[in-house]
């Protein structure tokens, strides 16, 4: 696996300058996720109204892969229904586990597709999926 297959420009951009790394003033729920073995720790904040994710943001620390993955996720789920957001999380996790490889099927993951090659790096899988597992947990609780 070549380095730039993983550390893509999209990943670099989102990890250096995340758009959604801040607190939400009207968050309706917040959930912390962490990978104890590596120290990645993020808190996802969501503003959910009438079953729709109006806004999403995060705070915390972690590697470029986890930070970029979280930022891309926040962007992707804004405006989506809770149901859609959970489906995207499931799809992303399946992509990283290597269960779904068909690009057409993954199309609605949009920028998150840039993380697809993490599937070939077992040591970094946890970094990529942290935010999406946390999101799924948060939405499960919100129901």
């Amino acid at each position: 696996m070549a380095l730039d297959d993983v550390y893509t420009e999209v990943l670099g951009e989102h990890s250096r300058n995340p758009d959604h790394k801040h607190h939400l003033s009207c968050a309706t729920c917040a959930l912390k996720g962490h990978n104890p073995s590596c120290g990645d720790e993020i808190t996802i904040e969501l503003q959910i109204e009438n079953g729709v994710v109006k806004d999403a943001a995060f705070t915390g620390i972690g590697c470029a892969i986890s930070q970029a993955s979280t930022d891309i996720m926040a962007e992707l789920i804004r405006g989506k229904s809770v149901e859609e957001a959970r489906n995207l999380a499931k799809k992303f996790i399946s992509m990283i586990k290597g269960e779904i490889t068909d690009e057409d099927e993954l199309e609605d993951l949009d920028e998150a597709l840039a993380l697809k090659n993490v599937a070939h790096m077992p040591a970094r899988v946890k970094c990529a999926v942290l935010a999406w597992h946390t999101l799924d947990d948060a939405l499960k609780k919100d129901k």
């Binding site: 696996m1 070549a2 380095l3 993983v6 073995s37 590596c38 620390i61 590697c63 470029a64 892969i65």
Partner: peptide, 23 residues
């Protein structure tokens, strides 16, 4: 500076250098 240890380890690994990263 600015780079998380796990990214450092992955990048060094790609140049054939193994270091440990984490706590």
């Amino acid at each position: 500076k600015d780079v998380h240890p796990h990214d450092v380890a992955t990048i060094l690994d790609s140049y054939g250098v193994a270091v440990r990263a984490g706590h």
